[in-house]
């Protein structure tokens, strides 16, 4: 790495430069085959897909494994409330959420509010966002602290959309 650092013709990348150089120099490199779930979540599409994989494949990361916890921020939220008008199917919902609408095949981060009559389908909603009555969200990632207005329609069947254009004030 130190040798590679000053070279102007290098992208300083393990895959592109360092490992090929080692191979050229005849160093002994061995592969370790990894069989578990993995995904590079560097784009909106792949981040969305990873959430959908999680829902479709029945916990491929084994988040439920007490002996291999995934530690995270854990803030003092209120409990999760599921209201009398809610319909939940194939979804993961975090603490602090208040859901009285329909959530299908989606992931809700902490403190998300889904009001009565709102629909969230194949989507990922980040912390503290609010989806008002009658709004429809499909194939989206909604960013943190976003506001979806009453009866607003966000997302389509054709592509994955990222919604970050209206913050809750």
């Amino acid at each position: 790495m130190i040798e590679n650092c000053p070279r102007k013709d290098s992208a300083h990348d393990f895959g592109k430069n360092i490992i090929p150089n080692l191979l050229n120099e005849g160093k002994r490199l061995f592969a370790y085959p990894f069989a578990g779930y993995w995904k590079d979540v560097g784009t909106v599409d792949s981040l969305w897909q990873a959430h959908m994989d999680l829902l479709a494949q029945g916990d491929p990361l084994k988040l439920d494994d007490e002996s291999w916890k995934i530690y995270s921020e854990d803030v003092p939220t209120t409990p999760q409330f599921i209201g009398p008008n809610a319909t939940l199917k194939g979804s993961s919902i975090n603490q602090g959420c208040v859901v009285d609408g329909t959530v299908v095949n989606s992931v809700l981060f902490r403190d998300v509010v889904i009001e009565k009559g709102a629909e969230v389908i194949n989507s990922v909603i980040m912390p503290e966002s609010v989806v008002k009555r009658g709004a429809k969200i499909k194939n989206c990632i909604v960013g943190e602290r976003q506001l979806i207005l009453e009866n607003e329609v966000v997302g389509s069947d054709d592509k994955i959309e990222l919604f970050t254009s209206r913050e809750v004030n």
């Binding site: 995270s72 854990d74 999760q80 409330f81 199917k89 194939g90 919902i93 603490q95």
Partner: peptide
Amino acid sequence: TNDSPPAHYTARAEVKNCMVAN
């Protein structure tokens, strides 16, 4: 807190008026 994953509802779940922990 104990860093548990979010609550998960499968396709067959039916939920009305509940408070659910992680």
